[in-house]
Write a protein that binds this DNA or RNA. Structure first.
Length: 674
DNA sequence: TGGTTAGTCGTTTTT
DNA sequence: CGACTAACCA
């Protein structure tokens, strides 16, 4: 097995004498190192699968790694009998969830606590702050998250704020809100994403015996995308792997693109200080891209200060020049890119799946989706939570959350009111007031006689019908298959009829299809992992549907944000909207975040194996108004010899129209022949 | 209580 | 331009 690796890769796989940091440039085979190391440890070094945990950054990466390890294990001649069962391959968040679920009691939570996504916690904050000021709410949310990730308690936050002057009042207010927010979460028996990492850390620091238990359980950690680790996650790693540092961290400082989420590249440097015995291995051979693509990437990233010196090289041939096209506006850009893609596909006899269209912000996908649909081309959009953000899915999840955890008031409110079932604002307001005065959940309050006397007969009947329904589901959930319960729940609440009542037929149809997809996916997951509905509910909060749907469309053009594309590779990449204000994003330009934007561009470029097309618009519609755009400064940072402009450059707009037309006609003619 | 309508508001990236 | 909200009627 090791013969398939190059010398530094092999060294990284075999090294188990102490903490190891693998600095792996883009496309240098870092996943390969992790997967082979896992198998090597099981096969050659006597590790049991359940003693190893590999931590990835996204669910997608986790699933991919799971597959690759499974593949390697099944090929292994010595391990025929032993499957990789018990092996942990998970994101930080789902590992945290696993720990939290088992240790919930010692933190004052029940095991079936709810997990809130950022929009849930946003709503809670809006409630607590009693404001609709989005800016303020966003800032507060960000501040609280930052406090959580640096282990500042509400009390400490209050003390801290008195030292500063400028936004003392603001910070002080935020500290107060922080406290209320935490109390609210506890009352709902809910945790937010930050808590999933933070609470295990606190637990381990306060209960050495629990830490000891987990240290003995997880003997070795492999961490992917280490440059994206935040301080909290790093602390968790240090706790689990102990002073000996039983871990391999794999990362690339040039691909650090999650600084805004609290990830700190300093954690990479911190490793060398915290673990003096740290061994560093560099992987510098790129197995992915042509020389031109790689040279462009290197040339660009050379404008950033270096943390670790490394020189990536490739022997995959020079390859084509990088094409840089200017489009008249964003509609033309989408049109031109799709045309170009079709022509390219025809010319090179490739598959749809060989192409990716990458962009900075999710909304940029829309026009391209329209074009792709118009041309009947198969495509998939990856962009994280979009599926779970859909109203119809959130509706169902609200029911699931309430069934699993009756203290979850936000879920109660959503489920009680969608679809409408005669429970209106007045009823809920009274219920809320009563529940608050008695310090119980909405669900519990509904059953109390003192409250029931406050309602009219019809209101009470409607409310109790709903609560009794939830009660029934709570009893059935642990016993029956997830799929059965979901289906009977859907018919009980008449969800399909509700959709067709309140939507256009077409919209209702797609929504209902989404619901059915969701149900299918959950029931499959339930039976394959032998989990009941209650257990599934928590994991659902951490999933993005992407993985469930990807299987459906084997040969499709991939649309993805640059963030979501990290770790993936594509034969041919279109990098779109490469303009000032978008690729170095407006907000980042002011805030000293240019370097991270450059790394984002770097990530985009290095996704490409064979060809790269960059496009930008001379004009773009923004909030209904046409706005003049400039090409991104990053385009000027590419090596001149490796790029070729189409449709003119920033300083040379004259040729654009003629050339564009000519090129378009060419492409149309070519397509006509098919 | 629930649906409709006329205004307002604002667009990074994700677990 | 479109998504989301707050006041307004049935």
């Amino acid at each position: 097995m090791l013969s398939k690796l190059n010398p530094p890769q092999r060294e990284a796989v075999k090294y188990l004498d102490g903490p190891l940091l693998v600095l792996a440039g883009a496309g240098s085979g870092k996943t390969r190192v992790i997967t082979h190391k896992i198998v090597h440890m099981i096969e050659q070094c006597g590790y049991a699968p359940k003693e190893i945990a590999a931590i990835t950054f996204t669910n997608k990466a986790a699933r991919e790694m799971q597959e690759r390890v499974g593949q390697l294990l099944s090929e292994s001649p010595t391990l025929k009998a032993k499957p990789g069962k018990g092996l942990t391959i998970a994101t930080f968040h789902s590992l945290g969830l696993q720990m939290l679920r088992q240790e919930a009691q010692s933190l004052g939570y029940k095991p079936q606590f709810s997990i809130l996504d950022s929009s849930d916690s946003f709503k809670i904050l809006a409630d607590v702050l009693a404001t609709t000021d989005k800016q303020l709410l966003k800032r507060t949310q960000w501040q609280i998250s930052k406090w959580k990730n640096t282990f500042v308690t509400p009390d400490q936050a209050t003390a801290l704020s008195s030292k500063t002057q400028a936004d003392e009042e603001l910070t002080h207010a935020a500290a107060k809100i922080y406290q209320l927010y935490q109390q609210t979460l506890k009352a709902y028996q809910a945790v937010d994403f930050d808590d999933l990492i933070k609470l295990p850390v606190e637990l381990f620091e306060q209960h050495p015996e629990t830490l000891d238990k987990w240290q003995r359980k997880l003997k070795y950690l492999l961490i992917d995308e280490y440059q994206d680790t935040n301080t909290c996650q790093y602390r968790l790693v240090r706790l689990i792997t102990g002073v000996e540092g039983r871990f391999t961290a794999v990362g690339d400082d040039d691909q650090a693109i999650y600084g805004w989420r609290g990830a700190d590249v300093e954690n990479l440097r911190g490793l060398t200080e915290d673990f003096p015995r740290l061994k560093v291995i560099k992987l510098e051979q790129n197995y992915r891209s042509t020389v031109r693509i790689l040279r462009s990437a290197n040339h660009l990233i050379a404008n950033n200060p270096k943390l670790f010196e490394k020189k990536l090289w490739s022997d995959l041939g020079t390859g084509e020049q990088i094409q840089i096209s200017a489009a008249r506006d964003e509609v033309h850009e989408a049109e031109a890119v799709i045309m170009k893609l079709l022509a390219h596909k025809f010319e090179h006899r490739t598959r749809f799946a060989d192409y990716a269209i990458l962009y900075r912000g999710n909304h940029q996908a829309r026009l391209f989706e329209e074009q792709l649909r118009g041309h009947k081309m198969p495509y998939t959009v990856s962009g994280g939570q979009s599926f779970f953000d859909r109203a119809e899915i959130k509706d169902l999840i609200a029911y699931l959350r309430l069934i699993a955890n009756e203290d979850d008031d936000p879920a109660f409110i959503r489920a009680a009111t969608t679809p409408k079932k005669g429970i209106g604002n007045t009823t809920l307001e009274r219920l809320g007031e009563y529940a608050a005065s008695r310090h119980v959940s909405l669900f519990e309050a509904a059953f109390e006689g003192a409250f029931q006397r406050l309602l009219g007969q019809k209101q009470l009947d409607d409310l109790l019908t709903f609560c009794n329904f939830i009660n029934t589901m709570q009893h059935r959930a642990p016993r029956e298959p997830a799929g059965d319960i979901l289906n009977s729940m859907l018919s009980a609440i008449k969800y399909e009829a509700f959709l067709y009542d309140s939507e256009e037929p077409r919209a209702a149809e797609t929504k209902w299809k989404n619901v059915m997809d969701f149900v299918d996916w959950l029931s499959k997951k339930g039976s394959s992992e032998e989990k009941n509905l209650l257990e599934l509910t928590q994991t659902v909060a951490l999933m993005s549907m992407l993985e469930g749907r990807e299987n459906g469309e084997p040969d499709a053009v991939k649309l993805s944000t640059l963030h979501a594309a990290k770790g993936l590779e594509f034969g041919h990449v279109f990098l779109i909207g490469v303009e000032e204000g978008i690729l170095p994003h407006r907000e980042s330009v002011d805030n000293d975040k240019i370097e991270e934007e450059r790394r984002l561009m770097y990530v985009g470029i290095t996704r490409a194996q064979r060809s790269l097309h960059i496009s930008w618009c001379r004009k773009r519609k923004r909030a209904g108004e046409m706005e003049v755009c400039e090409p991104s400064r990053f385009i000027a940072e590419l090596p001149v010899a490796d790029i070729r402009h189409f449709g003119g450059t920033a300083t040379d707009p004259a040729t654009s129209k003629e050339h564009g037309k000519e090129r378009m006609a060419q492409i149309r003619a070519m397509l006509g022949k098919i």
